[in-house]
Amino acid sequence: MKIGDKVRFLSEVGGGRVAGFQGKDVVLVEDEDGFQIPTAVADVVVVDDDDYSTRRIVENKMKPAATVADDDSDYDPADRPVTFKAPAEERKGGDMLSAYLAFVPVDVKAITSSRFETYFVNDSNYYMHYVYSVAEGAGWQLRSTGEVEPNTKLFIEEFGRDELGTMERVCVQLVAYKRDKPFLMKPAVDVQLRIDPVKFYKLHTFCENDFFEQPALVLAIIENDKPARPLVIDAKRLKQEMMGKAAADSQPSRPQPKHAGADGKDDPLVVDLHAGELLETTAGMSAADILNYQLETFRNTIRQYEKQKGKKIVFIHGKGEGVLRHALVNELRYRFKSCQYQDASFQEYGYGATQVTIK
């Protein structure tokens, strides 16, 4: 087999002409549109003489590449091996960064016992170098690092339910760039995500998506150049967003909040319990499921700070029908009796917020 030979694929319809070679075992087949397709030598057959057997291919595969150059009568400089790699495909609208961390059950039909696969999804025209870590005490443990090509997904690891307890907080850092062409510089991304182990026991957690044929839990790292928001945000950031929204709706801005301590050390921790902030999607969840998830977030937050005496935590629950607030008050009365609570400042958080003080 040499450059210019007409070949046909053995395992599928189609073929083309030999444009070159990648090493001894891969031939570059150029189709009628001019695309060069890397194909194993054993998967094509020369058809210029209507010989469809694989005998000639096997003989060529066993013959060392160096002997081709040693044969003075048949040697042609154009027959030398060619190094070829198809350029990364780009799509319209892909110059805005979007990347996701995805968890896919190995056996979705046995969700209570299935293991899970972790993937990094690059939904953009940029290459991405990522670092994936999980929190371990006060530090971090590296789980994976590597490069992901544009518009592809990369398998990171497989894990079981016994490891869920070590993955409650994960961090993804990434740098985006393009190869062999100019590109717009993108800021480095550093996003921390909360992983709720309880969600991995619920079938509705894993939904249809654009990246996998099977249901998956897909968490945004960055979407349309906007990094994902953390689950728990500080008071200053929440106030800025609330005021920005009020300005956009042409409503009077709320007064600037006044906190004790010029350095902000006495600012309360703010946790937004709205379902839209806690969950990627509520598809398939009943009102009771959502309420239980909100209460579990409330309990976990109290337990996390229960040793920090005097710590103030503001829970944003909204006004609504008062169901969530009533449930929170019930928890404080019977489960967390040592905590004090009161309505949070209306000027800062509106009517739908409760402030808890750890005692």
Rank of each mutant, 00 (worst) to 15 (best):
P227T: 06
K226L: 13
E223I: 07
F183D: 08
L219V: 10
M185H: 13
I222W: 00
N224A: 13
I221Y: 00
F212E: 06
A216I: 09
M185Q: 14
K199P: 03
Q192F: 00
A216K: 03
Y201C: 06
L219C: 11
L219P: 01
I195N: 03
L184I: 15
A216D: 06
T205G: 05
D190M: 04
P197Q: 01
L184H: 09
K186W: 02
A216L: 10
M185V: 15
Q192D: 03
P197F: 02
P230H: 02
V189F: 05
D225T: 07
T205A: 07
I222C: 13
E223R: 12
L231V: 10
V189Y: 00
F212D: 02
T205R: 01
D210A: 15
P227E: 00
A216N: 03
A188Q: 13
R194V: 15
E223V: 08
D196F: 04
P230D: 09
V198Y: 08
L219F: 01
Q214H: 08
V191M: 02
F183H: 11
I221N: 04
P197R: 01
F206I: 06
A228Y: 03
R194K: 13
K199Y: 09
L203S: 13
Y201W: 09
E223Y: 13
F206G: 00
L193C: 13
N224M: 13
D225Q: 10
L203K: 14
F206R: 03
M185F: 09
L203W: 07
L184S: 14
H204P: 08
L231I: 09
L217G: 01
Q214L: 09
A188M: 11
D196P: 00
K186D: 11
P197W: 02
K199M: 15
P230Q: 10
T205H: 01
N209L: 08
P215M: 06
D190Y: 04
E213P: 07
L193W: 02
K186N: 13
P227V: 05
D225F: 04
A188V: 12
H204C: 12
V198C: 03
I195W: 00
C207R: 09
Q214S: 15
V218F: 02
D196L: 01
L184E: 15
I221P: 06
K199A: 15
N209F: 10
K186R: 13
V189L: 07
A220I: 01
V218E: 02
L184P: 05
A228P: 09
L193V: 12
P227M: 01
